[in-house]
Design a protein around this nucleic acid. Structure first.
Lengths: 350, 350
DNA sequence: CTGAAAGCGCTTACAG
DNA sequence: CTGAAAGCGCTTACAG
């Protein structure tokens, strides 16, 4: 096998710790202590060694270190769909926090349909990451079993899996949806179409629960016919909205369970020749940058994305450092914020 | 140092290749051949070894492998701002392609202001990645020198750095902006405000060149007073638009050089009590999902993000595999698409 | 086709 | 405070 050099530039073998030791006239153990900031080397010697390191351009080989220590200082991050702005910000925030603590983030998304979340997580495990943060796409049994079998720290974000006991960070989905629906009811809406995510996610279930809770509190009947669900994608939102708008007694307001489904819903509204908020009110879960700029400016529930990422990173870091060793899963629940803009109007009196 | 176990679950030492060899009654070399699919082991023995692997749950240790081979099968990806939807899609596409080829992607973004791109790239290098894909934020000399000194394959995407010779993938910025500005001119606009990115990026320069080119071709004078620049951020777009709208002879159309600056521009327009497209036309570089849903539906230049990611991945993979060893940098230039929606109207006749 | 052995570049007890 | 040496778990010539 004639191995060609993979780079165009000449790659001279980089100096090792041994080279440093030889040049400095000490043993590798001493060099290692200096490199790792173990304060047992007398200052003068340390200076000398550091000078040699600088001189010959020594860089510690992380791979060799990992092999020896069994730690890669790398965290795997698996989210269903990084293109969804909520997940994008989550990824950004997590990578930010972890990097600050000296951890790298390996990304893994099941974008293609021919791969599963389990396969994605397996890939991460293959890479010998020290821990995994997962925003699970579903409650799938196989996925749950896989997560249970992972022998490194796991933190679940955004959604939780029934029966899987790991640390997790979520928002108070039920309460925030309940607040938003209550707001709509107070505007006079009695028939509110609910575009739900798929029932195999905790977020979809909790958001639907919020809808029911608000109706109950306001003494409005729950009508299953006003609920349509899909898999949190734009197309699902479109289909759901089409069905709701086709109802003989059309709802006067629509709630979409995430930022993608609301796009579909808006398109459906346009295709029906209706406009928002004149003909129908619309609100959704998840805020996004554009919501405040274009018309209608959507009323949304904004999740504290930065804080979610921060908390998830913290939980992970605490496990990794051994500060927290309890078997008890820890759950952080954060509050979301209702942001009222101009996409909802008082219901027309009939 | 009493090292506590970092996991709550009991982590039994996982089996090694040696264990497999012992149980199967062969040498590690044979096991290695089986694991690496080197077809020199006789089928029956291979089956037996595979059975043992399955039985004792052996998983190859990637770290040890990397130490030996000098390859991590990991690519570093550095983008200025992952939250910008253009970069998000780029990251998603690259990670998709590379993962399919067995490469993992380590993400690195200079989100925090107290870190530099060089520092971010250094972090990647520390991780012993096999190659780096960079969307450089600027033409900064230090960054350029650093990139030049990297001794593994580098591919630049989106922007290029003057004087740095690496493979790169860009779009035809000049031409696409020229087309868009021509479109505006044909709508009757003679005073088109140009919100530019910062001059130390090739994209900003090329886009501005497109503006000038269109004006020249249509025999319109170039007026420096109609150009304002910023650093591609929302706030910069806002400030630029405020200045342009404050002009005694206000432009009748505004072009923003990216998807973030256009948000700022729209906010400025609103703050001036104007509306788009009634009072002023607006267009921008970069398409985004929401552009087609809310009003005004923006006229944009859509980059072929998937293709950019695909090409960048391909260039990288070709270097990595040794298929391409030339010192000549290869440059791929892709075409963008003008998407006309309803945010631009014929200029009012004066 | 298979095995024994060296070695990738570190870290870390263990002596001194 | 410093050094000699073992070993992390692989891959890969080299023999046979």
């Amino acid at each position: 096998m004639t191995e060609k050099t993979t780079t165009t530039k000449r790659r001279t073998k980089s100096p090792t710790m041994n080279d440093v030791a030889t040049v400095a006239g000490v043993s590798v153990a001493t060099v290692s202590a200096v490199v790792n900031n173990v304060p047992i080397v007398r200052p003068k010697l340390k200076d000398k060694i550091e000078a040699v390191i600088e001189e010959i351009g020594y860089k510690r080989n992380t791979i060799a270190r990992s092999l020896k220590t069994g730690k890669t200082r790398t965290i795997g991050l698996n989210v269903a769909d990084i293109v969804n702005p909520f997940f994008t910000e989550l990824v950004s925030s997590i990578q930010d926090y972890l990097q600050e603590q000296g951890y790298a983030v390996i990304l893994s998304c099941a974008t293609r349909d021919n791969t599963t979340e389990e396969a994605q997580i397996k890939l991460l495990l293959d890479r010998m990451v020290d821990g995994i943060i997962i925003a699970p796409a579903s409650d799938d049994e196989r996925l749950k079993n896989m997560i249970k079998s992972i022998d490194i720290p796991v933190v679940l974000v955004d959604r939780i899996c029934e029966g899987v006991s790991t640390d997790s960070v979520v928002v108070d989905n039920t309460r925030s949806v309940s607040d938003l629906i209550t707001y709509l009811i107070h505007l006079g809406h009695k028939r509110i179409g609910f575009i739900s995510g798929s029932g195999d996610t905790s977020t979809a279930r909790d958001r639907l629960a919020g809808y029911k809770e608000a109706l109950a509190r306001e003494d409005l009947p729950f009508d299953q016919g006003l609920v349509r669900s899909g898999r949190f994608r734009e197309g699902d939102g479109y289909n759901a909205a089409v069905e709701l708008l086709s109802l003989p007694n059309r709802p006067t307001a629509l709630f979409a369970s995430n930022n993608l489904m609301v796009i579909g819903a808006m398109k459906a509204i346009r295709d029906f020749g209706l406009s928002c908020p004149e003909d129908i009110s619309v609100a959704c879960f998840d805020d996004f940058r554009w919501a405040d700029v274009f018309e209608p400016r959507l009323t949304t529930i904004a999740q504290p994305v930065q804080a979610i990422g921060e908390q998830a990173s913290r939980l992970m870091l605490e496990r990794l450092s051994g500060q927290v060793v309890t078997d008890m899963p820890r759950r952080i629940t954060l509050a979301s914020e209702l942001i009222v803009r101009n996409s909802c109007r008082p219901a027309a009196i009939k």
